[in-house]
Nucleic acid binder design. Structure first.
Lengths: 240, 240
DNA sequence: ATTTTCTATTTGTAAGACAAATCATGTTAA
DNA sequence: TTAACATGATTTGTCTTACAAATAGAAAAT
């Protein structure tokens, strides 16, 4: 019983894997154009359709982007933290939607992870980092902005806070958690019509970060999370 | 100048987006079969090729999986932490390969995040969790296994440790960091021929987790990370 | 010199055909 | 009766060909 080669991945998957590894190993550099689809098809000895399906797989992972026209083609793109975190956050949101992940778990994760993160921020925050955080805070303080804009500024604030750690991996990971928390913030902001609590806590956090007040900063963040969880539960209860 | 609808996303992207939202909103439940490709093509008024490219996008995100045959089709799959973390870890590895992320940043992130994580584990670890951790440790202790198997067991150990927090989001996030650390462990294990250090630290961690020794557990993990970073730098230096 | 037009190139979309896998069903043989 | 086998229907996988749409650069016209 020859067991006929168990795993038979589809061609498009194989091609995608080969291209991916070619990109990762630097055979194709960032911004560079891949060979045309016809050429790839010829080179791998498959049809253009298969190459295209492979490229779509890579495009879905933000690894390549296509442009039409005579100077067009499929280009290797620099994956950004934002985009990556966005797709991760989408995945987390999906898990929530499917009931595989609870809001309390997301907040719990944020709570568990923030401590070390804030410590790093206190150690590494530069003047520029602080300015970015303040900018987000100022945008948030504008009473004229919409709920959506307020939430966007909220995300920007927390991202800037993580940026202050100066650690790319930390940014990558925490952006995901922040992204996953967006629905919570959205709900709280739209139901509780009081923005002042959030703003004042944010201001407090910025001040304490400036003063390098480690324990104070942690306490403020904890307070913020308590507030969010409480209001969210109230909102959920009120809806049911 | 009517500005003709700025953003013209490709059809396959639009279809992918529509299907995605249909899945997220629960129109298609998990495990369910989507309409056949022909039917989707007809329903959206596009060609089957376009539908297929859209499905490949979703497949790349582990949202659907295709099976051939008369009972086959494209099925909505339950995204697992493992798969998600794997693709995230791949993204992180990519960032490392492109020089956008340093090994020290990954280890730094691990160091910053583990504290709160271990606290959670100490609070929530059940007997079953501890058994899983021990199982991974036992596999790792077997002197007969290959380097690859050793590293797999290492990953299993750290995953089990995070599982003990009982928090899905934490698992999701930390799996990513663990995944991103695999290349480091690989290199250290293959260059430093001594597995005993890692094993004894792991054993120590399990013991301290059992004793609910918070500070001790943190210290062990810090020690392990110090060890990894040191050996990794030695190995890198030796290679250069 | 500037604007317009043309042209070549490349991805995007469509349509049709066949291969390969897979299951349900019926048929035959023991 | 039961088990093995053959057949057909269904669905995804792949290939082929053709044309549409976008785009940049060259050529032509003003």
């Amino acid at each position: 019983m020859p067991q006929t080669a168990v795993a038979k991945a589809s061609i498009s998957k194989q091609i995608a894997e080969q291209l991916r590894s070619a990109i990762v190993t630097g055979q194709f550099k960032i911004g560079e154009r891949l060979p045309t689809e016809d050429e790839l098809a010829q080179r791998y000895g498959v049809s253009r359709s298969s190459v295209r399906e492979a490229l779509k797989r890579l495009a879905a992972q933000n690894l390549v982007r296509a442009r039409r026209g005579s100077t067009g083609g499929n280009f290797v793109v620099q994956p950004s933290y934002e985009e990556l975190a966005e797709s991760l956050g989408a995945a987390a949101t999906l898990l929530v939607g499917l009931g595989a992940l609870g809001i309390d778990e997301i907040i719990g994760a944020r709570r568990a992870l923030q401590g070390g993160c804030l410590d790093q921020a206190i150690t590494h925050a530069t003047r520029e980092h602080l300015a970015n955080i303040e900018a987000a805070l100022l945008r948030q303080q504008d009473p004229g902005i919409s709920d959506e804009a307020f939430c966007r500024a909220d995300v920007a604030f927390h991202r800037a806070l993580v940026d202050a750690t100066g650690n790319g991996m930390l940014r990558f990971v925490m952006y995901t958690v922040i992204e996953a928390l967006i629905p919570v913030t959205n709900m709280v902001v739209s139901v509780v019509r009081e923005r002042g609590d959030i703003i004042s806590l944010h201001r407090q956090m910025l001040e304490r970060l400036r003063k390098r007040d480690r324990d104070g900063l942690r306490a403020s963040m904890d307070q913020l999370l308590d507030y969010l969880l409480l209001k969210f539960e109230q909102a959920s209860a009120g809806r049911a």
